[in-house]
Structures are given as C-alpha cells and as structure tokens.
C-alpha cells in the first residue's frame, strides 16, 4: 500500500463495459450463425470469415494509421458489424463483394463519422444496402450451396418475399410457416431460422443488453398494419405471420434496429422509432419496388433519431 488513491465518487463501477455488451451481441448472434453455417456450408463460412476479418482489420488500419488513435478493435464492435454484414448477404457472395461491403460499412458508415458511437447509420446495413444497389443480381442470388447437414439442402431460387413481389399472393400460397420458424426456404443467411434469432433476442433481454421496446413495436406495427391490409383484401396482401417471419424482419428488428448508436435513447423514443420502421417496411413491401424493406426502413428511421431524441425524452423527476 503506497499512496492513497483519491477520486470523486462513485468509487465502484459496474462490470459491464462496451466490450462486454458487444460480446453479448456476438453471443446472441451465435445461434443464427450456427444455423446458417450448417445450412449453407462452406461458402457461408467463407462469407462470415471474410466479413469479420475485413471489418476488424479495416477498423484497426483506419484507427491506427489514418486517425492515429489507439485501436478500438478490442471493443468487439467491428466483430458485431462483420457478423451482421455476413448474415445479411447471400451465401453465394464472392469474397470481393463481401470486402467491398466491409469497406463501406466500416470505412464509410462508421469511421468517417468518428468511429463507434458517432455514426448516424447502422454500418452493417449501409454496407448491405450499398451492395444491394450496386450488385442487385448477385445480392439476390439465393442458389443453394452445399450445407453441412446431409439430407437438408437449402431451397434455391427466390425468397418468399421475392416471389410475392413478382407473382403476388398466389406465388407463395404453398408456404409452410412451421418450416419458416426453423429453417426458411432460401434467403440471406440471417433469415433462415426464426427460432435462432428469437433465442438471441431472449439472451439479449436476459442480459439486459437491450430493452424490448424497439423490437416489439416493430413486430406489433407490422402485425397490425399487414393484418388490416390482409383483412381488407387477402388476395392482394400477404398475411401478418408471413410478414413477421420473412425477409430479415426478425434479424433487423432484434439486432439492427436495436443498435445503441443509431436508435433513440428513451423507451418512448424507441416505440416511435419501431413504429416508423414497421410502417416503412410494410409500405415498401406492399407498394414499393423492392421485395423487402427492412434495411431501408431502418436506415430511414436512423436519420430521424436525433429528432426523436429531442422530442421523446424520459420523464424527469418532479416535472411534468
């Protein structure tokens, strides 16, 4: 015992750190990762590997050599971006496309704003949308790749939402929801198993990493909105369960809309944010040109976050 340490109160600190929160997100993503690797096999493993490695490496290079700051890769946030980006891409994506996605996600969407905490848009989504617009064919190539589970092969061809977008309700009439819950028919890696994503959601809630407001309000909005439309005309509009279970809605609502940096602070703000995402998603799906609207909806609502933060604050003690 040498000299006494003196600092202002409080003198104790929670064990939760940025790194531990981000690590928890990675852990919550594991079920989805495992399912997608089992399902899509080696090619998915390559996409994941390239995505994570390039995100982490880029963050390291940019912080150390361009910004000349201590590296921030130890906070695990680049890993989260890498995993999310990979789960948003088809397993057939060539490695260079993944690399471009990582450059856009980390280089453009995250580090140009000043790194973790400063970015306006969700980096993984920006990367994904950039690829979607630049390489529309490759990004919607859902051909089956060889999985690790013999006997179960990924269904090839378009995603259910793609089918609906082109052929209307009839094109998807044969779909089995039970199938969707566990192993979806085609789609990006993160879409294939609802159960895997829900398991991650429960883990995040249990670890108090996220609050449920954003996710639940997206689900409720999508359910109610599509429910109304479906009741009005079931031959033109898809039903609520279909909309909840397909097209990355679960992945987006659990892991990307809840991203700390790009979502509102207060629970009330979170609800507004979630309702906005739900509405925009459904408008794009029903009336837009793209089959699935989750990515765009989240990005559009990301841009409203500062405004939401300003108008939807927590109730202050002893004030109206």
């Amino acid at each position: 015992m040498n000299k006494l340490l003196v600092s202002p109160s409080p003198h104790i600190h929670t064990k939760t750190s940025t790194a531990s929160l981000m690590r928890d997100v990675v852990i919550a993503l594991l079920p989805a990762v495992v399912v997608s690797v089992l399902f899509y096999g080696l090619s998915e493993l390559i996409v994941l590997g390239v995505s994570i490695a390039s995100c982490v490496l880029l963050e390291y290079l940019i912080t150390r050599y361009m910004l000349k700051r201590p590296s921030t890769i130890c906070d695990w946030s680049a890993v989260v971006t890498g995993v999310l980006l990979a789960l948003n891409l088809p397993a057939t994506s060539p490695w260079w496309m993944v690399l471009i996605g990582a450059v856009v996600a980390i280089g453009v969407a995250k580090m140009t704003f000043g790194g973790l905490g400063q970015n306006v848009f969700n980096p993984a989504l920006v990367g994904r949308v950039f690829l979607l617009i630049s390489f529309p064919v490759a990004m919607t190539d859902w051909s089956a790749t060889k999985g690790f589970i013999p006997g179960i092969d990924a269904a090839s061809g378009a995603t259910p939402l793609g089918l609906y977008s082109e052929g209307g309700v009839e094109a998807i009439s044969g779909m089995n929801y039970l199938h969707t819950l566990f192993l979806n028919i085609g789609g990006s890696a993160g879409e294939i198993s609802a159960i895997a994503i829900l398991a991650g959601f429960v883990y995040l809630l249990a670890r108090r990493v996220i609050r449920p407001h954003v996710t639940l309000s997206i689900w409720i909005t999508v359910f109610v909105f599509s429910g109304i439309m479906w009741l009005i005309d079931p031959s033109a509009y898809t039903d609520p369960c279909f909309n909840l279970l397909t097209g990355g809605l679960l992945l987006g609502s659990v892991f990307m809309a809840t991203d700390y940096v790009t979502s509102p602070m207060s629970p009330a703000g979170g609800i507004v944010f979630g309702v906005g995402i739900g509405l925009i998603t459904m408008l794009i799906r029903y009336f837009g040109a793209y089959p699935e609207g989750m990515s765009f909806a989240i990005l559009i609502m990301n841009s409203t976050v500062p405004l939401i933060n300003k108008f939807f604050k927590n109730k202050k003690f002893g004030r109206k």
Binding site: H13, T18, D75, L116, K315, F317
Partner: peptide, 22 residues
C-alpha cells in the same frame, strides 16, 4: 475502484436508464 480508460459514448442509454432524476 481504479477508473478504466474513457472510450467513445456508444449512446447505449444506460445512464439515462439509471438516473433516478430522469
């Protein structure tokens, strides 16, 4: 008790959640 190095705010809102004065 030793404070760890400060890093970027990640806007997680844990402080607003914890503040008893809102």
């Amino acid at each position: 008790t030793v404070r760890k190095a400060e890093s970027n705010c990640i806007r997680c809102g844990k402080c607003t959640e914890a503040c008893p004065m809102g």
